[in-house]
Amino acid sequence: MTASTASSPPVALHEPWEDLSRQRQAATMGMWIFLLSEMLLFGGLFAAYTVCRSLNPMGFRAGSHEADLVYGTINTVLLITSSLTMTLAVRAAPARLHKVALGFLAATVALGLAFLAVKGMEYHEDLTKSLFPGPGFKLPQQGAEQFFSFYWVMTGLHMLHMTAGVIAVSRLIVVGRRYPEWLETSPAVEATGLYWSLVDVIWMILYVLIYLPGRGG
């Protein structure tokens, strides 16, 4: 009933719950409350972006035109696919398809790492093109520097969330490989899946705000 010791396998059921069903309800509810706070955190950034963009539409358009659509789109596809693999892992685990679940979890981590690698390449290119706000910034248009301030803050914050997600999913793999029954019953699998999907959702909005304005012109 209580937390596991170093010598015993981890138990899925913890105090104060009497059964796994109640514990699972509490875990998903707790995760949803956490996701609410995340929605409002990024929502505030989106609101600030919207105001600044309405004040400097041409500068934001010029800034967005410099953002690399190819990198952004590749990363969007990677994240959408990782959400698929995470969802399949969440559904395979309680069905006692342990190896399938572990395979999907491993695919999720691989796709998450690929996202971070592509983002790192994009950051390197941005820095090479002097797109970091400050002295020597490339674009002269008013508001373009502000656009890239939002770009670095919002994508950087999102990268931190991605990194945390990769660590959380990796933990599921490490523990789940040793204790398949834990993977089958623990609410942590479902809660981690919810978190991963939210990171995906935030990126979908970021993608539209950062990469799509100013295209085709």
């Binding site: 963009r53 358009r61 659509l69 539209v208 295209r215 085709g216």
Partner: peptide, 15 residues
């Protein structure tokens, strides 16, 4: 992506 290119990406409501 297609609509952003076709419409110039200046209508944030569509995206």
């Amino acid at each position: 992506v297609a609509l952003a290119y076709l419409l110039g990406g200046d209508n944030p409501l569509i995206g």
